[in-house]
C-alpha cells in the first residue's frame, strides 16, 4: 500500500481537510516537538510552538514549495524560528542571561520518527558534535538553538568577538569534516526531497 505523499496531504489541507493536517501532524509532530523542546526546554512552551507551527501550516499551506526541499525540513525551519522567537519573548520577562546549552534530560518518551533518512542523519550529526571541543560545541548550539549572533554571543558570554567568530568557524569546519568522514560516499538525505 502506497503512503500518501506530503504534497498530496498539503493539497488536501488546502481544501480545508482537517484530517489531512492531522495526518501530517501524526507524521511530523514528534520531529517538530523534539526540536521545539530542545530549543525551549519547557514542555508547555514546546507544545504551544508545535501547535502554532501546524496551525500556520493549516492557514497557509501554499507557502511550502516542494521543489525547494522536503516538507519536514521546512517545518523544522519554521519550528526553529518560532521557538527562538518565543524564547526571546520569554527572556524579556525572565531576564534570562545567555547560558550554555546543555542537553537536559527531558524525561519524555523517545519518539518514533518519520522521515527516517533525514532523522538518522541528524542523530549522527548530534553524535559527531559531541566530538567537538566543548567551547566550540556550546557556541554552535547557542547559535543554532538560541539564535544568538556573533555580537550577542560575545556580549552575553563576555568573550571577545574575534574569539567567538574563530571558535564558531572552527567548530563548523571541524563538524563538516567529521560529517564527510562519516559519509564519504553519501550526500545528505535532505538533498533528495521525497515529495
Amino acid at each position: 500500500m502506497t503512503e500518501i505523499t506530503d504534497a498530496e496531504l498539503l493539497h488536501q489541507v488546502g481544501q480545508r481537510n482537517q484530517q489531512a493536517l492531522i495526518a501530517l501532524y501524526q507524521r511530523y509532530g514528534n520531529l517538530v516537538y523534539s526540536l521545539a523542546l530542545r530549543t525551549l526546554r519547557q514542555p508547555v512552551l514546546a507544545e504551544e510552538v508545535t501547535q502554532d507551527v501546524f496551525l500556520k501550516l493549516w492557514q497557509q499551506p501554499g507557502r511550502w514549495n516542494p521543489a525547494l526541499g522536503q516538507l519536514s525540513s521546512w517545518l523544522l525551519a519554521i519550528t526553529r524560528n518560532a521557538a527562538i522567537d518565543r524564547l526571546r519573548r520569554e527572556a524579556r520577562h525572565t531576564a534570562t542571561d545567555i547560558d550554555l546549552m546543555t542537553e537536559a534530560e527531558s524525561g519524555a518518551e523517545p519518539a518514533v520518527m518519520s522521515d527516517l533518512g533525514a532523522w538518522a542523519d541528524g542523530q549522527l550529526l548530534r553524535e559527531l558534535m559531541r566530538q567537538l571541543p566543548t567551547e566550540q560545541r556550546e557556541l554552535i548550539e547557542l547559535a543554532f538553538y538560541r539564535g544568538y549572533t556573533h555580537s550577542e554571543l560575545s556580549e552575553g558570554l563576555g568573550v571577545p568577538l574575534g574569539t567567538v567568530k574563530t571558535r564558531l568557524r572552527a567548530g563548523m569546519q571541524k563538524l563538516r569534516v567529521l560529517w564527510e568522514q562519516a559519509n564519504p560516499e553519501s550526500t545528505p538525505s535532505l538533498t533528495h526531497p521525497n515529495a
Binding site: 509532530g29 514528534n30 520531529l31 517538530v32 516537538y33 523534539s34 526540536l35 523542546l37 530542545r38 530549543t39 514542555p43 507544545e47 508545535t50 526541499g69 519536514s72 525540513s73 523544522l76 525551519a77 519550528t79 526553529r80 542537553e103 527531558s106 519524555a108 518518551e109 523517545p110 519518539a111 518514533v112 520518527m113 522521515d115 533525514a118 532523522w119 542523519d121 541528524g122 542523530q123 550529526l125 548530534r126 558534535m129 543554532f144 560529517w179 545528505p188 535532505l190
Partner: peptide, 13 residues
C-alpha cells in the same frame, strides 16, 4: 539543515 533533525527524539504529548 541536518542539524534541525539532531534534537533528541521525544514523543509529543
Amino acid at each position: 539543515e541536518i542539524m534541525h533533525y539532531s534534537a533528541p527524539p521525544v514523543a509529543a504529548p
